[in-house]
Nucleic acid binder design. Structure first.
Lengths: 184, 184, 184, 184
DNA sequence: GTGTAACCGAGACGGTACGTCAGGTCTTGCT
DNA sequence: AGCAAGACCTGACGTACCGTCTCGGTTACAC
């Protein structure tokens, strides 16, 4: 049975204002400088409204990620039949996004958030492991299902590693990792 | 020519006390709760002594890593002739270290620190990419030099990814990623 | 029209706790050793609560003075008809207060505070210049109104001077200054 | 018998540099902002040299006062035969000195220093109580010796009071206090 | 309609940590 | 042994946020 209750329901407007503000501030200042007070200020929302609905900074970001307010792009992997070429091309596109003014900061921030909240790690993996039908193609390629998952993680992990080291991945690097992971 | 100056020199005792305290507190409380004040307290050192010599929390950790106060283990990759088996065995050993009471927390903390300080990312890569002569063996295996580097990063990145997602890597997972990266 | 605002009001309890703590610590340790942190600690109040409402140490003392938490005594000048005798007697009483265990320290502290905050100087003048109807009597005595003010300041200034020099005023000294200022 | 000792004697150059620096900084920044470190820096002197020879900030100022580095002016009271006129004229001159750019700050600073060190109070009294032969003239005027001292203190105290209250003394005020203290 | 209970914005509260400044002591190499 | 330089530990500074709380105002269902 549903619980019936008087009074107003949760304000969708406030919820969206918070998520938007959080996403904006994250891109501008990085995770370390993302404070609840700043989010409340930017969103013109009382602090209590935030504490009422979200248990942590990371929870806000998780929701913002799920709402598509961060990493909005749905980068699909094309299918030309050549898996290596498709993956290489897809990774290049992902990198061009991350190299945009605040892309690096954003990814670094999300990694930081993930250290506090595994769910964010999973969301990042999903965004960075080229999941659009790739798995089936990897399996079709000859690798068993379990390897398909691991290969996705390796791709995502490799990209994270580059960002954490402040490295700018070269076309050669991308080609090499794809060749190593997906034998022609 | 050396610069000669009168007056007291930097206190090696204070330096080591700070690094030790930082390493201990990191393992106990995680990076988010690692404060300069706590380090100073634990090390019986004035805050100013820390601010005089280190520009940031992350810089302290970098130095502690380099001094071998964190991840002390020198996990060598054995050479039985079978690269896949050697790597698999090495990764399992690394994992058993990370699964020790504070291993996971430590790695997560270092990832968080790396988001603020790329040098820490590089140090982690070195510790996690099985660099002891592996590169030569990978090259001997048929992959070009560039791929050897990328494969190392992929291994390290994959492990970081598992930790961030809170996943406990299975023997199957390890075997799969090694198979994917190092064709028999 | 009054300004209406939602939200919590200023806590009177915190305000009084701060003023009381400040007065106590002043009497115990002197102005030089009166720190905001000690006041906050003693009053069980956050430092920010102090900084929110008072711009300086001296402002806290001013308010404490006005609230009668320092120099609580309302030392009235009696009127026996003999102005010289009344003033002499009043100054002796003031001195006995200042000679009490912490009286000297308190006055010295207030002088120190006054060097940073003229308003405290004015409050001290009021407390030390025997203003209760004296002015009218001085005027009635033959001195013009302006001189009445100056005579009050001279009395207060003389007492401050004695305290600053660490001197213990003698009955003779008091009698002499009263005679000099108020011709019989 | 004199104690013979090896090694260099106290450096007069360092001593004067410290006193000069202290006097300059006092006039510029006020007593509250006069720090040992700033004096050492300004005087190009090691902190230890200061701590070796002076027990406190106030002791430095006392010595600087005695050396005539502060309130250098020797304001003499003239003798035209009219004591009231002479005192009034002298006080006006003192005030014009105190009203010079840093005069007020200096006096306020000295008062603050006196709260920590009675000797400074006495030095100020000497400078501000018109001691040059005035005492004899006051006595000759008919007041007993003790009153002469008190009258001097009252003059000095009155001036301090004006400075502490941030008041600008008017010619009328000066005339009034002189008339009150020195009956024609 | 009218309670009434939960929502909302604002922001004060007791705290913790920040990064800086100065205090007073100690150490080093020079003169 | 005095000196300039400056590292050391200590502790206060004034600021930024934390997470909790208290206000007045505003819905929106339940009676």
């Amino acid at each position: 049975m549903e619980e019936h209750r008087a009074g107003p329901r949760r304000s969708e407007q406030a919820r969206l204002a918070v998520l938007t503000a959080a996403a904006d501030l994250l891109a501008q200042n990085g995770y370390e400088n993302l404070t609840i007070e700043a989010i409340a200020r930017q969103a013109s929302v009382g602090k209590q409204t935030i504490y009422r609905w979200w248990p942590s900074r990371a929870a806000i970001l998780t929701e913002a990620l799920l709402e598509g307010m961060i990493f909005r792009q749905q980068l699909a992997v094309r299918n030309t039949g050549d898996l290596r070429r498709d993956l290489t091309e897809w990774m290049s596109r992902v990198w061009s996004v991350l190299d945009a003014p605040q892309g690096r900061m954003l990814l670094r921030s999300l990694v930081a958030a993930a250290t506090e909240h595994p769910a964010i790690g999973e969301l990042m993996r999903d965004r960075l492991s080229a999941d659009g039908g790739i798995r089936a193609r990897v399996v079709a390629h000859g690798d068993p299902a379990v390897a398909a998952v691991e290969i996705g993680d390796a791709i995502a992990g490799w990209m994270m590693m580059q960002v954490l080291m402040g490295a700018a991945p070269t076309p050669d690097g991308i080609r090499a990792i794809v060749h190593a992971l997906v034998p022609g």
